[in-house]
Design a protein around this nucleic acid. Structure first.
Ligand SMILES: [Mn+2]
Ligand SMILES: [Mn+2]
Ligand SMILES: [Mn+2]
Ligand SMILES: [Mn+2]
Lengths: 225, 225
DNA sequence: ATCGTATTTTAGGCAAACCTAGAAAATCTT
DNA sequence: AAGATTTTCTAGGTTTGCCTAAAATACGAT
């Protein structure tokens, strides 16, 4: 089913656009505005690139609407996401990087490593299925495990939940969460979800309470414990 | 003494040009023709880039003669060489890459990794002073150990010598040498250096003889055992 | 010293990614 | 249904890094 158009390797810009479309919309349509702000690039640049990506057969693009990934584009995006997440795991586990620093390095390395490198790292790591932030690592065959989690901000008060994943990649937020032990695997009890301002208060296993703003709480993904 | 012009990071092209000047001439002057063939780039491109490198303060360039590295350019070249050689060592020792495949991967990764990454790898490896091909690894402070070796092609017949380094980076030659165990550390006895065609015959520790063409023998660097 | 060859530079182009400014289209508000 | 606002596209421009073809320079050999 996949076109055999294995021409030249794609540039890092192209790759980052594909990842952005995937991250924003999955199989759906990503709006130029959202791509522009996610990639920190002018909307003129987005328009231009989307046209090129369509030319390359990587997205389906409709003017004034946005772009969705073709099968080929989707496969390429997932391949990059796999690399990114494996590299993050490697940096943390083998090079001793702090949790909040792995993302930036991976963002560059994902474009420079070969498939050979990627698979050797996967093997070294024992083929993990989640990265240090709890995000699932796509398989080498392009499959991605279904996610079964809800944002902490929508958890019922009183519930015991386990952090499955942290859907953030900016260093300050990650450093803050790690300092409080709010990392994947941690079990919490939901004390309060305040309607007024969205602040969520939780108690961790050591009896310590943490209050998280609505936006931050929404990026902490949990599953019923 | 080093200018504090720590502006934006240099591109991989710029880095590869600097490494090429260094590899061809060290502190001396590298000719455009040699850069052109080493980098597989037209001479017009070389002229253009040398002008830019001068503009950036990385080389001193004289028309129709070539370019030599400034202090800053030299430092940058050595920094890349350090990365390259550490990465090669890491690929071999920790990811199980075959000897002849490490160079190509390192050639790309050297431009994508951070100093942080590099120094963490150095630590993981125990701060090695030679890479898998026997080439010395520059220190983080920009120092490079003096080399005390001679080409095998110029060794006196009858001498016992130890391979210190293999000055080649193309996969076929490396694969050939490794298949015969002609790698750094191996001790050989020089049986014949034929004036006629430069072919060098050596006997290894297991009593096996090897005949190497003049060009290949010149790239095998040895020291008196 | 001059000729012929090799090397280097110049001139002119091209593609990838970015940008700003302004026009056009879509969407939200009243 | 306008009008105002937001979003997107178009037009035109820049930088980096490469190219080919042709002119200029340097060098080696008679
Ligand atoms: Mn990440
Ligand atoms: Mn990236
Ligand atoms: Mn190498
Ligand atoms: Mn390189």
């Amino acid at each position: 089913m996949v076109e055999p158009t294995m021409s030249q390797p794609l540039s890092s810009s192209v790759g980052d656009y594909l990842k952005a479309v995937w991250g924003l919309a999955g199989h759906g349509v990503a709006a130029p505005k959202d791509l522009s702000s996610r990639l920190s690039v002018s909307s003129a640049s987005v328009t231009e690139m989307l046209r090129r990506l369509q030319e390359l057969g990587l997205v389906e693009y409709e003017r004034y609407r946005g772009a969705s990934l073709t099968e080929e584009g989707h496969a390429e995006a997932l391949r990059l996401v796999r690399r990114h997440r494996l590299i993050e795991t490697f940096l943390l586990e083998h090079l001793g990087y702090p949790w909040e620093e792995v993302h930036e390095e991976a963002e560059r390395l994902e474009h420079a490593v070969s498939d050979n490198f990627t698979e050797r790292v996967a093997q070294l790591l024992g083929h993990p299925d989640r990265d240090p932030h709890g995000a699932p690592i796509p398989g080498a065959d392009g499959t991605l495990a279904r996610e079964d989690s809800r944002p902490l901000s929508g958890a019922p008060v009183g519930d015991r939940v386990r952090i499955l994943r942290v859907g953030r990649e900016d260093a300050p937020a990650l450093a803050y969460l790690e300092a409080r032990g709010l990392v994947p695997g941690r079990v919490l009890r939901v004390e309060e979800v305040r309607a007024l301002d969205g602040v969520v208060t939780v108690e961790d296993e050591d009896g310590v309470s943490h209050a998280l703003g609505g936006v931050l709480a929404a990026s902490v993904l949990v599953q019923g414990s």
